[in-house]
Structures are given as C-alpha cells and as structure tokens.
C-alpha cells in the first residue's frame, strides 16, 4: 500500500519528505525502544512511536523504513525535521495514541 493512501485514510499530517508519499508500505511496527525497532522492524515498514529526537531518523534510514508516524500530537525537534528532510524520511503525525493508530493501520493494511 502506498504511504499516500495511509496518510489520507488515517488523517495523518506529513511534515517532511513530502515527495516520498509514493513509498510502499508493507507493514508496521510500534515501539519506543530504538534497539527493538533495529532488531524487529523490517524494510518498508512504517514505524509508530512517541520518540521525536534526531536518532529516529538514523534508525529509519538504516532499516529502510517507509516512514515514521509520531503519535499523541508530539512535535519532532527541529533538527529531527531537518535530518528527515535530508534523508528523504517521511515523518507523519497524528493526535491519536499508539494503540488507536496501530489498530487503524492494522485494519487498513489487512483490509479488514
């Protein structure tokens, strides 16, 4: 599924790398522990987290994730946004909780 469809259907706001809404999303992973995401997320997954600091971009890049969804309306740091733009990493935000947005994304991806 394209990132653009997920953005529209889940009402996400995109903050960076807007040219990459065409990214393919094959799955999702929800976690706030960076090592957990390094160990268990997969290529082309979208990552749901409350973390907003710079290092989330490095993790997303290394794991070749399709994007990051930041929950609870948290605002990424300005250097996070800058780095994400440089690295072509789409950062999206939602006012919803990790539980709600993960559930919605799961349903959407599984076609429930």
């Amino acid at each position: 599924m394209k990132l653009n469809k997920i953005k529209k259907d889940l009402n996400l706001k995109i903050l960076t790398a807007k040219k990459f809404l065409d990214n393919e999303v094959k799955g999702g992973y929800t976690s706030d522990l960076l090592s957990d995401v390094m160990a268990n997320s997969k290529e082309k997954y979208i990552w749901i987290t409350l973390q907003v600091h710079l290092n989330i971009v490095a993790v997303a890049k290394l794991k070749e994730l399709s994007g990051i969804i930041i929950i609870n309306d948290r605002k990424p740091d300005s250097d996070t946004l800058k780095k994400a733009e440089q690295e072509n990493c789409p950062i999206l935000t939602t006012p919803k909780t990790a539980f709600e947005i993960s559930g919605e994304l799961y349903q959407l991806l599984k076609g429930i």
């Binding site: 522990l33 090592s35 957990d36 160990a39 290092n55």
Partner: peptide, 15 residues
Amino acid sequence: EMGFGAGMGLPNIKK
C-alpha cells in the same frame, strides 16, 4: 526516555 537503554544492544550484536 529517549528509547535507549533497553538492554538489547550487546545481545543484538551477538545475535
């Protein structure tokens, strides 16, 4: 709080 220190670093390397 930054999401580090999960106690997974060295085990991840070994794995």
